[in-house]
């Protein structure tokens, strides 16, 4: 499974692997909704993701906005592969759609 959700005690860990694109978009949305519904803080692990397309970026961005709106945090767990950063930059995002930069 490219997408997994681990419910920890205080934190939800969302792991994304491989290509996260339109084929996984609906799954990613459900996963993020479940994580948001848990009421816990969230971490996204992108270490083994190879691609984030528009659908993934806008979902992560929306989830981030949602989390902040309800006073929780959505953070990156660990480093993000350089090519993903480049892709996000190419997509015209000033910063990564999730993470500390916007807090």
């Amino acid at each position: 499974m490219p997408l997994t959700l681990d419910q920890g005690e205080a934190v939800c860990l969302i792991r994304l692997k491989g290509e996260i694109d339109i084929t996984t978009a609906a799954d990613l949305k459900n996963l993020l909704l479940r994580a948001l519904a848990s009421g816990k803080d969230m971490c996204v692990d992108l270490e083994r993701a190879t691609e984030l397309d528009v659908t993934a970026l806008q979902l992560l961005w929306a989830a981030d906005r949602e989390a902040r709106g309800s006073g929780r945090s959505l953070k990156l767990a660990g480093p993000v592969p350089a090519e993903l950063l480049a892709a996000v930059n190419n997509a015209g995002f000033e910063s990564f759609p999730i993470g500390s930069a916007r807090e």
Binding site: A25, K29, T55, Q58, L59, W61, A63, N90, A91, G92
Partner: peptide, 22 residues
Amino acid sequence: RTKASMAAIPPIGELDPERCYL
């Protein structure tokens, strides 16, 4: 130089995952 606008992205609950809002 690219700037994406996220203004059209709806709340995640209403978001259609296969539609481009950017």
